[in-house]
Design a protein around this nucleic acid. Sequence first.
RNA 1: GGAGAGAUGGCAGAGUUCGGUUGAAUGCACCUGACUUGAAAUCAGGCGUGGGCUCGCGCCCACCGGGGGUUCGAAUCCCUCUCUCUCCGCCA
Length: 430
Amino acid sequence: MLDAKLFRSELAQTAERLKVARNFLLDVERLEALEQQRKDLQVRTESLQAERNARSKSIGQAKAKGEDIAPLLAAVDDLGAQLEAAKAELNEVQTQLQDIIAGVPNLPDESVPMGADEDDNQEVSRWGTPREFTFEPKDHVDVAANIVNGMDFDQGAKLAGARFVVLKGQIARLHRALAQFMIDLHTTEHGYEEAYVPYLVNQETLYGTGQLPKFGEDLFHVKGATENQVPLSLIPTAEVPLTNLWRDEIADEHQLPIQYVAHTPCFRSEAGSHGRDTRGLIRQHQFDKVELVWLVQPEASMDTLEMLTGHAEKVLQLLELPYRKVLLCTGDMGFGAAKTYDLEVWVPSQQKYREISSCSNMWDFQARRMQARFRRKGAKKPELMHTLNGSGLAVGRTLVALLENNQQADGSVTIPKALQPYMGGVEKIG
RNA sequence: GGAGAGAUGGCAGAGUUCGGUUGAAUGCACCUGACUUGAAAUCAGGCGUGGGCUCGCGCCCACCGGGGGUUCGAAUCCCUCUCUCUCCGCCA
């Protein structure tokens, strides 16, 4: 959420920036009208409340002195109705304003290139060299098929439906090994605190990180057993529970920065991506991810984004997987991001780089929704934190990259040195 | 699953019986000043969050777990949801 003041004192400029940078059209006239109404109604409501408070107080005083309060009660007779009407009107207007503002995307940082879609993203760097195969490389589904049926999409479909998978044997272990390796790296080398979090969260939590109100159709929602039980939703990423740990909290300055790492499954409905990446592990309704989250002071967030991205890169480097780092343009960034780097890993079967990590600085966008704040030493007012998150990495897609890049002519798959301790010391599988 | 108790400011903890000048006693923590070579101790003062109006001084509104209700007026009464604790039962 953007600062509401931007919609009052700098409405025209804000609308222009949103249009240019995010192709987001703000209904300026409607906002202006609503804001004017809000102002009038709020002043009226509050003065009615002030009047009611004053009169109620005098009734109390009169009663304490044993005076007759009947005339005072009569004088206050129609105040209640007036106040109720004003309140209702104000409420309506504020709900409308809130709906508009909650649906406005974040403004990009100055360093983000302008652009319409992914074609305008900027490649920042490449690491590693895609391997020259002396044979026709298979895709990960076929590579896995060679390893005693370690990846079974039919069984996934049988148990749950399309876009679900069952992993077994060495593939299942490799999948687990990758997650363990990533967590250990981030906790021991990069200073993250490991966290285990709920996979189901409530609506306030989803609002805090920006999934609601706008992107509810991307999630799986779980109805309570009884009618008036609170609705919960499966997390689409651990960013949601981790960042919300500081919702409605005020940290002391010395507690920052805070860094969390968690390994969780992620659940996405993938509504609107029918027919895309239907084969294989690339796009599933359920996938595992190791997520990195930072909560920092505003002045530190830009440097932190570089650090965070570096931590995700380190995983790819230690796994010896070729990748490139891409700076997303204004048009390709997520709803709440101010700046995002994607890491894309080389996928031999597709002869292209595919997203395996997305690292974003959300600026104060989520913090404002969540009221996640901190207080500087000696300062009176708390300030909004900045929040950042990034995948370090998506485990399923890492498995894809490893199987494809490390496949051998004989159908086996080599295990990178860094991962071997997590695989019982074996150098290859299959 | 059954029975009961509770949720108040950064923390602890009054107030809820019998609704009224209570944004809320008190203690701790914290900030400023005095004393001190410095610190501790002591003393004085300050010290919640969000919002509105105003050039400003400042004034006003809301908030005692969430939502709704009764009332001129609710931390206090009623309904409901959530969470916490105790006991019993069951259980990975």
